[in-house]
Structures are given as C-alpha cells and as structure tokens.
Computed example of a mutant assay.
Amino acid sequence: MLSGELDLEDNPTPITLSQRPKSEGHAYNRFSPKRTTSFMGSSPFGKAESYQKLEQLGEGSYATVFKGLSSLTHQTVALKEIQLKEEEGAPFTAIREASLLKGLKHANIVTLHDIIHTKETLTFVFEYVSSDLSQYLEKHTGGLNPFNVKLFLFQLLRGLAYIHRFRILHRDLKPQNLLISDIGELKLADFGLARAKSVPSRTYSHEVVTLWYRPPDVLLGSTNYSTSLDMWGVGCIFTEMISGLATFPGMKDDQLDMIFRVLGTPTEDTWEGVTRYPNYDLKQFGLYPPQNLMTVIPKISFIPLAAHLASQLLQMNPHRRLSAQKAMKHEYFSDLPHLVHELPDAASIFTVNGLKLLPEMDELLNEMPKKPSGRSGIRTTLRV
C-alpha cells in the first residue's frame, strides 16, 4: 500500500491579519548514528528504565511530551507519553503515527528511536529538537530573513516529497509541527493525523488540518483528496514566514470567507465542479474578486519569484496546486547550490559546503554598536 509513485502534478478588500496562536511548546539534537528498528527481546531498547524523564515540554490532545535522557547513549531525547485506558487501549492516532514513522528515514522527518509499552503508558522516544517553527516565528517577529525562509521552505518540500512518494499524507501541517534544530534543520513531526493513501482512491474525513492551514476544498466538504491537501498548508506557511503573520487566520464560520477575500470567490467559471461540494452556498459567501498576493502581503513583492511560487501553492482548485517535487524545482530556489537536489534522503542540506542560516533582523540589530550620545552618531547600513 505504501509503494508506487503519485502523479503530482484594483479595489482591494482590506484584510485584517491576526497573530498566530502561541506554540504548544512541544519539541522532539540527533540521538545516535543508528536508527533502532527492533524494540523487543533482551535489548535495552523498549524499556522504561533506559530513559530518565526530565522537564515537561508540552501537552497535546492525547499525549504529553517530556525532555529525557537516554542511559544507553547519554544523549537528550524527547519522550512522547500517552496515558492508556485499560478499557480502550492505545489511541488509534498513536498506533498510526508509530506504524508510519518506523518506516520513514529522512533528514527532514523526525526520527522515532524507540517505543516503550507498559500497562499504563505508551511512550515514543524521538530525537530531541530544540524548537519549532512557531516558536522561531514568535522569537523573530515581523517576518524572517528571506534566505532563511527559502532554506526552511526547501526542507519542508523535501520532507513532503519523500512521504508523498510513498503515498503518505501528513494532513496536519502547521508551524507547531515543523521542528527547527539549532543549525536550522527543519523536520516534519506529529504524524498523528497522517495516513497512507490507498489505491484506488477512498474517501477521508474532512476534519483534518488545523483550521488556518486547511484548504478550501476540504472546508467545502471534500473527502476525496490527495497530496494537494498538504501543499495548501505549505503555501500558508511560506507566506507566514515572509510576513510574520498567518495569511488566513479565520474562525470556523469565516475561514472560507477570509480565503475568498484574498483569492476571489470561486465559481464554475474559475473552478469547474466547485458548486458540487456539499458546503458550497453562494448565499453564505461574499462575492469577491481575486487580489494580487503582493497587495495582501507587501513583503512578498521584495523577494524575487516568491509571489509566483506562493500563487502556485495557494491554488483553490486542488488539481492546480503545485506538487512538492515540482515546487522544489521552481526558479525561486535557483540561487541554492545544485547539490541540494542530489543529496541522499538521510543527508541534511547543511552538509552542503557554505550553506547555513543567516542572522535574522533582530539579531543584526542586537549586534549593532550602540549610537554614541551627542551629534557624532555613526550611521550604519544593514543588509538582509
């Protein structure tokens, strides 16, 4: 079921952009040179006494994440602990996450090292990563260094292209689920909603993806979707990194309206078949013309080709959305070393000589010399 390839193929309305929600604080540096594939038998893996639980990092809907220490390798780990109810057993989301992650080996996907099963808990032992994209955005407000946006985006696409190759959909892309290491490695995490897409196509729940990153076809009630579901989220995260604000920060009743205010209200002329979606009702929507993304997100106009790539990702019609593999080849990435396209799956892009994150604006400001008092001030020009 996991094999085979997918065929991936002038009066602007004022937009009020809200702040992103705070990061949930969960964080999952590299654990060991070997990936554990067996947690049974006399091996010290799979045993609770092999790990020391430290402080709590965050709490989700069905799990609590702790910072931990491995007595096997003496390195820091992240312990995702799920409380089990005797009458219910392990949550299905946990079983699904474990089954998917055990088979994934990629530099841009969080590594699952061990699983500990006791009567009371099910604990996943992940590599520890110090932060996530939401926390990074909170730390560096007002939008990120354009080159860093490019590095984060390329890594996100790289990880998605890998899982999409195996017909796996993440289904919950958001900044909180993108871990960021100290050197800037981005790793896809939290595969609790992920699932393998079977062939032939089946229907899926439309209650997937955090609201701000949920595509219009799903909001309209589509339950027959593919990798395009994740690609809408990529577009939202891309533009959010540039502006520092969520692009479509709606609520349950106005999320579609917020999207339509920017991209225009879809009709059969612009999106064939849209009127057949169960939640399509023009009486409930405003009739808006499409806006230029550079009007809504002014900062994007200063980054060559960024608006074009974003518009290819934020296509309301899912069949027109760019795939991860094709997005990686977009001209927007032409100034990255060609070697980033030739790396083995398990190799980080930061193994390419000279490739590294650049300082963010707030970091550059902190490094500026203090202006002397009086009239003899020094004028300093910053380039980002």
Rank of each mutant, 00 (worst) to 15 (best):
A307W: 07
V296T: 14
K299G: 02
S311L: 04
I300T: 04
L322E: 10
S301F: 06
H308V: 09
P290G: 13
I297C: 02
Y288S: 11
L305D: 10
R320T: 02
M316K: 03
T295C: 06
N317H: 00
K326R: 10
L313K: 00
T295Q: 04
P318H: 12
I303R: 07
Q315W: 09
T295I: 14
F302M: 02
N317V: 00
K326H: 07
S301G: 14
N292I: 02
I303V: 15
I297N: 02
S311M: 14
S301P: 04
F302R: 08
L322I: 05
A324W: 00
Q315G: 01
Q291G: 11
N292R: 12
M294V: 13
Q312T: 03
I297W: 05
L322V: 11
P290C: 09
N317R: 01
L313M: 12
R320C: 09
A306N: 08
A324I: 09
L313R: 09
P289M: 01
I300V: 14
A324L: 10
Y288K: 03
T295H: 07
L313W: 07
K299A: 15
S311H: 00
P318K: 04
P304M: 01
I303Y: 13
L309H: 04
S301C: 12
T295M: 06
N317W: 08
P289D: 13
H319M: 03
S301A: 14
P298V: 07
Q312R: 04
A307Y: 07
R321Y: 09
L313C: 04
S311Y: 09
F302G: 00
Q312Y: 03
A310S: 15
N292F: 00
H308T: 15
Y288N: 15
K326T: 11
I300D: 03
M294R: 07
A307R: 01
V296L: 14
A310C: 00
H308E: 15
I303N: 04
L305G: 13
I300F: 09
P298D: 12
L314V: 09
S323I: 00
L293C: 02
N317D: 15
I300E: 09
P298A: 04
L305F: 10
K299Y: 09
P298M: 00
P289Y: 05
L314H: 07
L309D: 09
M316A: 09
L305W: 06
P298K: 08
P298G: 01
R320E: 09
M294T: 13
H308D: 15
A324M: 08
L309R: 02
Q325D: 15
L322Q: 01
Q291A: 00
T295A: 05
Q325G: 02
A306R: 07
R320G: 07
H319G: 01
I300W: 04
L313N: 05
L305K: 15
A310P: 03
P289T: 13
P318C: 02
L293Q: 10
A307G: 00
Q291D: 10
L305I: 08
